[in-house]
Amino acid sequence: MSRPDARLPRVLVVDDNAASFLDNLQELLSDAGYQVSVADSCRAARERAHAGFDVALVDLRLPDGEGTSLAAELKSGMPESEVVLLTGFATLETAVAAVRAGACAYLMKPCSPQDLLLTLEQAMRQVRLHADKRELARRAQMTEKLAAVGTMTAGLSHEIRNPLNAAALQLSVLERRLRKLPESQQGPLMEPLSLVRDEIRRLDHILEDFLQFARPREFRPQPVEVEPLLRRVVDLLGSQAEVRRVRLELVGPVPASRVPGEEERLRQVLINLALNALEATPSEGQVRLAAGEDEQGVWVTLDDSGPGIPVEIRDRIFEPFFTTKAQGSGLGLSIVHAIVTQHGGTLVVGDAPGGGARFVLRLPKAAPAPPQGVG
């Protein structure tokens, strides 16, 4: 089974040379592990760029514009990608123009395959560096928010929990008194009482989210078997899936692997993700869990057939307090991400193969159990 989060680096080739040249170039780059798209004009390049790219190879002379202008435009639209300019007429002026356009490299045509692949790899290192810097900035921002949550929770938890407990107690007293009334009088009075109880319970859950997020408990890992964990989650949520008329299933063979962690907390992660998927999936849709393993560890995917998660908010969905729901603390996915990180894993979001959202959870493998001694 292939890795669920594997993505080939994307190269956009912008050149109006002969078709045979482009075919050879495309074959060379594809064999080297790149996903290649081709454009023969500035206009076509702009259209292809909407799909995204990591590195653009741009010819200096194009039929409907200058490569330097296009390079600057592509770099402006995708600042974390890189542009390499190609030319068969190198001069000092064109080299200076390439630098001003934001190109990271400048190649003379024809260039050897070795030089081209080396330049592309150097450009991809820059792309990965941009991604690492963005991730560091995101983590720094999350750390600041964590500190703010911790300070606020310490001051508010006691002040909020006491009134909530008192209100819940008085509500129970009121309910016992109402039960003593004739049944014909209980109905109109019990309905608002149930509504208040539900709201108190919701506030208590929000407070619990704050406490769990701000003060995670001590981590005590034990080997956890992956297959029973996934089957338990599917069994627990089966009735909710039926009510929503959504098919929830575990597909494919599950590796007989173990991961180091706390089973209860890993179950919490998967239940939270699956519940979000069920809420996002329309009636007659499906939510699918799958698992596999590779040299990096164990992976679990959770796909739904809902509308998916817009690209522009994917970097924010694990941030504390960020939510697209009308109600909620905005801490559910933040808690999930914190638990996964504590387990030494990663959690990313993308597109499911058939549409909808895909979450990919990666966890390290547990050390193999020691062999049993022979008696």
Score class of each variant (00 low, 15 high):
Leu171Asn: 03
Arg128Ala: 04
Arg201Ile: 03
Ala137Met: 03
Ser157Glu: 14
Ser172Pro: 03
Ala214Gln: 13
Leu117Gly: 01
Ala147Ile: 15
Ser172Thr: 13
Leu117Ile: 00
Leu171Cys: 14
Gln186Glu: 08
Glu191Cys: 10
Glu183Val: 07
Arg176Val: 12
Leu171Glu: 13
Glu208Asn: 14
Ala131Val: 09
Glu208Thr: 12
Leu178Pro: 04
Arg125Glu: 15
Asp198Cys: 07
Leu164Asp: 08
Val149Glu: 09
Glu175Gln: 06
Leu203Ile: 09
Leu211Glu: 08
Ala147Arg: 12
Glu135Gly: 02
Val127His: 07
Gln126Trp: 12
Ser194His: 15
Ala123Trp: 02
Ala148Gln: 15
Asp132Ala: 10
Leu195His: 10
Ala140Trp: 13
Ser172Gln: 02
Lys145Gly: 09
Leu203Asn: 11
Ile206Lys: 09
Leu169Val: 08
Gln122Glu: 15
Glu135Thr: 11
His130Phe: 06
Lys145Phe: 04
Ile160Pro: 08
Ser157Ile: 05
Pro113Leu: 14
Ile200Glu: 01
Val173His: 05
Leu164Thr: 11
Gln122Ile: 05
Ala137Gln: 10
Leu164Glu: 14
Gln185Gly: 06
Lys109Pro: 03
Ala137Asp: 02
Ala168Val: 05
Leu174Phe: 03
Leu171Val: 00
Ile160Met: 11
Ile206Pro: 09
Pro192Leu: 06
Ala131Trp: 13
Gln122Lys: 05
Leu193Gln: 08
Ala167Asn: 01
Ala166Asn: 08
Ala154Ser: 10
Met152Ser: 00
Val149Cys: 13
Ala123Thr: 07
Thr143Pro: 00
Glu208Cys: 09
Arg201Ser: 13
Ser184Asn: 00
Asp209Gly: 02
Ile200Tyr: 13
Lys133Cys: 04
Leu174Ser: 10
Ala167Cys: 09
Arg179Gln: 13
Gln114Gly: 09
Gln114Cys: 06
Leu146Ile: 11
Glu199Leu: 11
Leu207Arg: 01
Arg161Met: 14
Cys111Leu: 02
Asp198Glu: 15
Pro182Arg: 12
Phe210Trp: 14
Leu174Lys: 03
Glu191Met: 03
Gln122Asn: 15
Ala137Trp: 07
Leu164Ala: 00
Arg179Ala: 06
Ile206Asn: 06
Gln122Pro: 05
Ile206Gly: 09
Glu199Trp: 09
Arg201Trp: 03
Leu169Phe: 11
Leu156Asn: 11
Leu211Cys: 14
Leu129Met: 02
Gln114Lys: 04
Arg202Lys: 07
Pro188Phe: 01
Arg202Glu: 02
Arg128Ile: 02
Gln141Cys: 00
Pro182His: 00
Leu211Lys: 03
Leu156Thr: 14
Pro113Ala: 02
Phe213His: 12
Val149Asp: 14
Arg179Leu: 12
Glu208Phe: 12
Phe213Gly: 03
Thr151Gly: 03
Gln185Trp: 08
Arg161Phe: 04
Gly187His: 15
Met190Asn: 10
Asp115Trp: 05
Gln114Val: 10
Cys111Arg: 06
Thr143Gly: 00
Leu178Cys: 06
Gly150Asp: 14
Pro192Ser: 11
Phe210Arg: 05
Met152Phe: 07
